[in-house]
Amino acid sequence: MSTTIATEIDVRTIPPYERHAQIFGQFDALEAGQALVIVNDHDPVPLRRQFAARTPGQFDWTYLEAGPALWRVQIDKTSNTAQEGGSCCSGGACGG
């Protein structure tokens, strides 16, 4: 499957307290097979951990540029749902 870059976000221009919310909002709007690229002045390791906890099995993380002054990371949306057990209905929890 070919990946389409939907948007590039330069997080250096966003106030720190808004960055992750904006990134997750953009990611959530993507379809599977689309990607976003973030540009930052440091390695966004905490963001990657949040992605792993929040959207397990739904993304790929690729460094396009890795410092020392600039980081560019491509985040591919691999699916719109978690691979296993990611649904609120798993085990009939939501009655659906």
Rank of each mutant, 00 (worst) to 15 (best):
P16T: 07
G57N: 12
Q74F: 12
F51K: 03
S87A: 14
T78G: 03
L47S: 03
D76E: 13
R19Q: 13
I23K: 11
T4W: 03
S2G: 09
V45C: 04
R12C: 03
V73S: 10
R49Q: 08
Q58W: 03
V39E: 10
N40Y: 00
V39N: 08
L64S: 01
Q74C: 15
A29K: 06
G25N: 13
G85L: 06
A53V: 03
W61M: 09
A93N: 08
T62W: 05
C89G: 15
N80P: 00
D43T: 06
V45D: 07
W71Q: 05
N80T: 10
A93R: 12
T55V: 13
G91L: 00
A66T: 01
G92C: 01
Q26M: 01
Q50K: 13
Y17M: 01
V45N: 01
F51E: 00
R12M: 00
D41L: 11
R54H: 10
A35D: 03
C94A: 09
A69V: 13
D28A: 14
I75V: 15
G92M: 01
A29C: 02
L47E: 04
I75S: 15
W71L: 05
W61C: 08
D60F: 01
K77Q: 12
P56D: 11
I38M: 12
E8W: 00
L47K: 01
P16K: 15
P68Y: 00
W71Y: 11
S90F: 11
Y63H: 14
G96S: 08
C94M: 09
D43L: 10
G92I: 05
G91H: 01
I38S: 06
Q50V: 12
T55R: 14
G33I: 10
I9A: 02
T13N: 09
S90R: 09
K77S: 13
Q22W: 01
S2E: 12
D41E: 15
R19L: 07
L30D: 02
C89N: 13
A93K: 09
Q58C: 10
A82V: 14
G85S: 04
R54N: 08
G92H: 04
I14T: 07
D60E: 11
S79M: 02
L36T: 06
D41A: 14
A66R: 11
C94W: 08
R48M: 12
L47H: 01
P44T: 05
G92N: 00
G85D: 06
P46I: 10
R72Q: 09
P46W: 08
A69Q: 15
Y63C: 10
S90W: 06
A69M: 13
T13H: 08
H42L: 05
P46H: 07
I5G: 06
Q26W: 03
A82E: 14
I9Y: 02
A69C: 10
T81F: 06
G91Y: 04
Q26E: 14
G92P: 01
Q50M: 12
E84T: 06
V39M: 08
T13Y: 04
L36W: 00
M1G: 12
A21K: 14
N80G: 10
G91W: 02
A35I: 02
T13R: 15
P46L: 09
E8D: 02
C94Y: 08
I23T: 14
Q50R: 12
